Simulated scan of single mutants.
Amino acid sequence: MKPLLIRCSAIGKLMTEPKTKAEGPLSVGAKTHIRNLAAQEIFGVEFEVSSKEMEKGNLVEPDGIALLNRVRGLSLVKNTERKSNAWISGEADLFDAASRRGHDLKCPWSVASFPITRVDCEDKLYEWQMRGYMWLWDADEWAVNYALISTPEHLIRFEPASMHFVDHIPEHLRLTTWTVTRDPVKEAAMVEKIKAAREYYAEVLAEFTTTHPASFKRELLAA
């Protein structure tokens, strides 16, 4: 079996600290995530999550990139390369090799969910995701860019149109950026958590094998 690689988008789930020493190096939430990964491996099914927010993000991503480029004076293009090292894997949104700076793009669902200040942007899960990208792309900084784009009409349904149609708002007011700076100490902390995650992952797979023996099926058929 290949070593478990943690996706950048999931690193933050491992980095939450346990509430008690009895939990060991991994929190309850981290262990839950690892058991989900084990289930996906056992049954060969990837647990995909979908929502109207995610659907909008996928549909308007090109418009969000265009807005980011215009407002920040950039010429970024969508990245399609997935990278991995011995510990993590990820497919970043945007990367500028010349400046060694990456960009993540997020298109909020509506005006109500658009962060208007940097404090509103800060999120531990996203921070660890960006740290993963910096590690994989050897970047110095990674910016999280929130671009407010009009929602496709067929997704809005019963919500007020004024919360979703935003083209009349000046573009520079529809982009909020939060930047994460690379930190080798935190990358080392990621390695330690992933080591613990791999140990627990192996334990879960072993327990599944023990509690679902082929002999149990034969006993049922013989009964």
Rank of each mutant, 00 (worst) to 15 (best):
residue 70 R to W: 11
residue 141 E to D: 06
residue 115 P to C: 06
residue 74 L to A: 04
residue 207 E to H: 00
residue 83 K to P: 13
residue 168 H to E: 01
residue 139 A to L: 12
residue 222 A to Y: 07
residue 85 N to G: 11
residue 30 A to K: 00
residue 112 A to L: 14
residue 195 K to L: 10
residue 14 L to Q: 07
residue 78 K to P: 14
residue 132 G to F: 03
residue 210 T to C: 14
residue 75 S to T: 10
residue 74 L to C: 03
residue 22 A to C: 01
residue 107 C to P: 04
residue 88 I to S: 10
residue 177 T to M: 11
residue 75 S to Y: 02
residue 114 F to E: 03
residue 60 V to C: 08
residue 78 K to Y: 15
residue 20 T to C: 05
residue 83 K to M: 14
residue 64 G to T: 01
residue 12 G to M: 02
residue 131 R to H: 15
residue 15 M to K: 02
residue 161 A to S: 10
residue 5 L to I: 01
residue 219 E to M: 10
residue 170 P to Y: 10
residue 149 I to L: 08
residue 45 V to E: 07
residue 132 G to I: 02
residue 92 A to R: 02
residue 131 R to G: 04
residue 34 I to N: 03
residue 47 F to A: 09
residue 190 M to Y: 12
residue 213 P to M: 12
residue 178 W to D: 00
residue 177 T to R: 09
residue 91 E to F: 14
residue 38 A to V: 06
residue 58 N to W: 15
residue 104 D to E: 15
residue 14 L to P: 11
residue 13 K to Q: 06
residue 196 A to L: 00
residue 92 A to D: 12
residue 60 V to D: 06
residue 135 W to Q: 04
residue 66 A to S: 07
residue 87 W to K: 01
residue 129 Q to M: 08
residue 119 V to E: 04
residue 160 P to T: 06
residue 92 A to T: 12
residue 194 I to S: 01
residue 202 A to H: 02
residue 28 V to H: 05
residue 181 T to I: 13
residue 10 A to S: 09
residue 179 T to D: 13
residue 138 D to G: 07
residue 33 H to D: 06
residue 172 H to D: 15
residue 56 K to T: 02
